Simulated assay, not measured.
Amino acid sequence: MQETPFCLSVGNILSYTMSDSNSTDFTNPTTFILLGIPGLETDNVWMSIPFCTMYTIAVLGNFTILFIVKTEPSLHGPMYYFLCMLAITDLVLSTSIVPKMLSIFWFNSREINFSACLTQMYFILSFFLIQSGILVAMAFDRYVAICDPLRHSTTLTNTMVAKISLAMVLRGIMLILPYPFLARRWPYCRTNIIPNTYCEHIAVVKLACTDISVSSYYSLSVAFFVISLDVFFIALSYTQILRAIFRLPTKDARLKTFGTCGSHLCVILAFYIPHLFAALTQRFGHNVPLHLRVLMANIYLLVPPMLNPIIYGVRIQQIRDRLLQLFAHKGT
């Protein structure tokens, strides 16, 4: 039997409907078509402005954090090493998504190679998991610094920080490896159109014409056991931190101590709350318009990389002072 061409022309994309997908016979995909934001195709240029702005802020802000920590010896400590790792994951996450998204918005370049699609999926998922692990490590650092300050320097040595960081990276790399391998083995015989700006895992595997329960159960297991455990350990650390803060004798001491971990709390909320909202929308928001679900799937990955350097730049005095010194030096 003659094989049906897999790639659709861009002109056919906008007229595509879900009813067509059930009658289309695709096999052995070589490319996927990223639809962008369904229903908002005519507003691509306008939609690109906020996403391009967020990406620019994320890149400039996170590179600034890396530069300041590298050039300021007083910032060479555990919290700032973890902060540098957070900045790197932010850069990788945002760069995995935005360039292709902007090429869709600006140049109508919707095709993505099948292997490139799986690679993008892998980078997004693995670095999301790595970032979650880094937030746990940062919570542990704040716990030791506040609850057992005399042992902070002996507990979180450079060697221990390196081991924790390596463990978080390996965890993200290894736990996400099954995702692209499982996605590659499924037969695809429905359509090659992904209604999103990037290769979201669930959007890709839903195109397979076979039982994908293995992928579904594995992704749910990772989300439940890994992310839930991360949130649990962060909550446990901050419960102990708050108990230690409330035991301090004066209000000024409590406020000052709480201020040392306030920026980390803001970053945690900026990371997990959009993700939780997006996950709930994907699972239960069947009445939510598709374009809103796609927007949420993009925002929860792009907002934290933009906000993190702003939060740390504003709330951490050492970074703020160093940044002001740089601007003052350039102005003279």
Results as ranks from 00 to 15, higher is better:
P180A: 09
F181N: 08
F181S: 10
L182R: 01
A183K: 02
R184D: 09
R185S: 11
W186T: 02
W186D: 10
P187Q: 12
P187Y: 08
Y188A: 04
Y188F: 12
Y188S: 04
Y188I: 10
C189S: 14
C189F: 03
T191F: 04
N192D: 08
N192R: 06
N192C: 13
N192P: 07
I194D: 00
I194T: 00
P195R: 07
P195M: 11
N196T: 07
Y198E: 04
Y198H: 08
Y198V: 03
C199I: 01
C199L: 02
E200G: 07
E200T: 01
H201L: 14
I202Q: 11
I202W: 08
A203Q: 13
V204E: 00
K206M: 12
L207K: 05
L207W: 02
L207V: 07
L207F: 04
A208T: 07
A208N: 09
C209P: 03
T210F: 02
D211S: 05
I212Q: 05
S213L: 06
V214K: 06
S215R: 01
S216M: 13
S216T: 15
S216P: 00
S216H: 11
S216D: 14
Y217N: 15
S219N: 14
L220S: 15
S221R: 10
V222H: 08
V222N: 09
A223G: 15
A223D: 12
A223E: 12
F224N: 10
F224E: 05
F224W: 08
F225S: 11
F225L: 14
V226G: 01
I227P: 01
I227M: 09
S228L: 07
L229P: 00
L229S: 13
L229G: 06
D230H: 11
F232G: 05
F232D: 02
F233S: 04
I234Y: 05
A235K: 02
A235M: 07
L236D: 03
L236I: 01
L236K: 10
Y238F: 15
T239H: 09
T239G: 13
T239Y: 14
T239C: 07
I241F: 05
L242K: 11
R243Q: 12
R243H: 09
F246V: 08
R247L: 10
P249C: 05
P249N: 06
P249D: 06
P249V: 01
T250V: 06
T250P: 01
K251Q: 14
K251C: 07
D252A: 11
D252Y: 05
A253H: 10
A253P: 01
K256C: 07
K256M: 09
F258Y: 15
F258Q: 14
G259I: 02
G259M: 03
T260N: 12
T260A: 10
C261F: 09
G262I: 00
S263R: 05
H264T: 09
H264Q: 13
H264F: 12
H264S: 10
H264A: 08
H264R: 02
C266G: 03
V267C: 15
V267K: 05
I268Q: 03
I268N: 04
I268W: 06
I268R: 00
L269H: 00
A270W: 02
A270R: 01
Y272N: 03
